[in-house]
Amino acid sequence: MKASRGSLKVKGVAKSFALPQGDLRVLERIDLEVGPGEFVALVGKSGCGKSTLLRLIGGLEAATEGEILLREKRITGPGLERGMVFQEPRLFPWMTTRENIAFGLRDSTEKREAGETVEKYLALVGLAGFGDAYPHQLSGGMQQRAALARALVSRPEVLLLDEPFGALDALTRIQMQLEIQRIWRESRGTVLLVTHDIDEAVFLGDRVAVMSEGPGTLRKIIPVPLSRPRDRSSASFVKIRKKIYNEFFNSSRKIKGV
């Protein structure tokens, strides 16, 4: 089988952290396949290990058990083929927006090409004209756009988004969701989005992976067979959202024995 660009496989992954009082298991038996160009949203409560899973795929942490394959090749560390955006923009305050984005380029990139690429990505995220601004001169949403451009500028196969809109106000968040959808459709890369916002997950994902905690496992994967752009108030949208909602709240009611 041909290993296609952006195909991601998580096989039997588990992760424990060593603590003074013993090992803490945060992820257990995670199996997930993400096809090339697919948008998968991971939802779960805080502490369910969804961010840890993303960090494992990003290569920032090593799995205790199992393996993660990108294009059938095992991941052993971070790499430019996997772009990453965090909840906080993490822009370097001593660099301008343009310099921050250029920092995401491969070191071997030729100077003229680098300049053109950075301008292109500045425009792509809607920051044309803000290249010379320092991060502290940008709004939170603009900072996050710059962080996105930095992650995209080396054309990664997979984009890993760790609650990237979590710290933004509600209106900016919706705006950013539309933007990320537009950018994803233009670049056709694979996207893995970690979020605790069910609405966001259903709006963006081709599939929504629901995680439960203690230790984190993949409880269910729910497909979202809706055409885009999606209408958040349509009956089919609301139905899927409710289904995911019930994954979290009905099951806990059962445990309480109601």
């Binding site: 990003g58 290569g59 920032l60 560390g77 971070p78 790499g79 430019l80 996997r82 772009g83 990453m84 965090f86 906080e88 993490r90 370097f92 001593w94 920092f103 995401g104 491969r106 070191d107 930095r150 080396s154």
Partner: peptide, 25 residues
């Protein structure tokens, strides 16, 4: 350390991380 993590993700070497991240900060 979050800045250093960004440098790791973007495949920057020790030397470049030192010059462009650690020293300015």
């Amino acid at each position: 350390p979050k800045y250093l993590e960004v440098a790791r993700i973007l495949e920057k070497g020790r030397w470049e991380a030192l010059i462009r991240v650690v020293l300015p900060s």
